[in-house]
Computed example of a mutant assay.
Amino acid sequence: MKLRGFLLGAVLSLTVPAGAAEAAKELRFATSAPLGTPWVNHVERMIEKMSDNSGGTLQAELFHAGQLGTEPVMVQKTVRGRIDVLGSSLTAFSTVVPELALLGVPFLWDNYAQVDCAMEQHLMPVFEPLFEEKGLKFLQWSELGWVHTFGTKPFLSPDDVKAVKVRAAPAKYSVNFWTGMGANSVVLPLAETPSALQTGMVEGGTLPAVTYVAMGMGKLAPHLTLSSHLHQPAAVVMSMRTWKKLSREEQTSITNALVPLKDVRNDVRTMAESMVADFKQSGGHVYELSPEQREEWKNAVLPQRDELVRSIGGRAQEIWPKIIAAKRACAL
């Protein structure tokens, strides 16, 4: 999510008191997103529907704002079964499902319509078994939106970032992007980025618009370029250890409780547009790349693509052609 992440994480207790065969099973949900955000609203609707579907036998407690740990920590806990339902970002999940990093290849997608079509109509069956191999039951995609570029000065061409120290996310696609642009990337966790900007350790980076504005990055690096050079999805998963303990009826209660993805996508994208507009109105600097500038960025980065795909590991070489096929099938 990078605000990372963002979305749901959850812990499920399956203990039923003696003599209470129909006692409710209590699920504890958690998310790194604050209350009132689209991701928390999404989870709250899911919790309500799950309770209704199960006739009240599945209940839940919501933990928000990262109370159960950072996203990478929650991913590991979910694999081990200590967290049972988790929604997190592409970056976090790629630590255990490396092939997911392919979805962050720079300049892979042309527009949101293409992203939505590919993810929903073609790529769910591609990635579901990869999650399961790692002990995670894939439930649903989620959304963080386009990732943009920001800096202490305008970044409008590769020349503007050549040899500049910039923050890269702890993901190969982020380092790959900056390598192509000619910058000197410094891999940092999101939480360390503000202090790195304050000390001059880095002079910029890349983030989804929502994360950039919500974390106050604009106060430290007030130049935001809407590069949309990669899309950051997220996913909602359940620990396979938990999933296998549930009855078929309980499993159905959960899958039928999933809120339509278009709702959270629309909410996140609308919020991002609103936040960028507010940032600009308050004095922030926002730049749109011209078609010529965007082509210059692509020409700088695309020669690095084959090396990125090779470096990701796992079954990336097998999965990559399927992603390209999905993109072509969804071309508008």
Rank of each mutant, 00 (worst) to 15 (best):
G5S: 12
F6I: 13
L7R: 05
L7K: 07
G9S: 08
A10C: 05
A10T: 02
L12W: 04
T15D: 11
T15Q: 12
P17Q: 13
P17S: 14
G19W: 03
A21Q: 13
E22Y: 11
E22F: 11
A24Q: 04
K25R: 14
E26L: 14
E26P: 04
R28S: 07
F29L: 12
A30G: 08
P34H: 12
P38E: 13
R45K: 15
M46Y: 14
M50Y: 11
G55Y: 04
T57Y: 03
Q59F: 00
A60E: 05
G69D: 08
T70Q: 08
V73A: 10
V75H: 00
Q76S: 14
Q76A: 12
G81Q: 08
I83C: 07
D84G: 15
L86W: 04
G87Y: 10
L103D: 06
L108D: 10
N111H: 12
A113Y: 09
Q114N: 11
V115M: 12
Q121P: 03
H122F: 10
H122C: 11
L123T: 12
L130V: 09
F131Y: 10
G135N: 05
L136C: 09
Q140S: 08
Q140F: 00
S142I: 00
V147K: 00
H148G: 03
F150D: 07
T152W: 04
K153N: 02
K153H: 05
L156C: 01
L156F: 02
V161I: 14
V161F: 02
K162R: 15
K162Q: 13
A168G: 15
A168W: 13
K172L: 14
K172Y: 13
S174M: 11
W178S: 09
T179A: 06
M181S: 00
N184Q: 15
V186T: 12
V186G: 11
E192C: 04
P194G: 06
P194W: 10
S195W: 03
S195Y: 14
L197W: 09
T199I: 03
V202E: 10
G204R: 01
P208V: 02
V210D: 01
V213L: 01
A214E: 00
M215F: 07
M217Q: 06
L220P: 00
A221I: 07
A221V: 03
A221H: 10
T225S: 14
L226F: 09
L230N: 09
H231W: 15
P233C: 05
V236D: 02
V237F: 01
M238E: 02
T242D: 04
K245G: 00
E249K: 15
Q251Y: 04
I254Q: 03
A257P: 01
L261G: 05
R265Y: 07
N266Y: 10
R269F: 07
M271E: 15
M271H: 15
S282L: 00
Y287L: 08
E288T: 11
E288W: 08
S290K: 07
P291G: 07
Q293G: 04
Q293E: 11
E296K: 13
W297Q: 00
A300Y: 06
A300F: 12
V301F: 05
V301G: 07
E307S: 15
L308Y: 13
R310N: 12
I312G: 01
I312A: 10
G313R: 04
E318M: 13
W320F: 04
P321V: 13
K322I: 10
K322F: 09
I324T: 13
I324H: 06
A325M: 11
A325I: 05
A326L: 07
A326P: 06
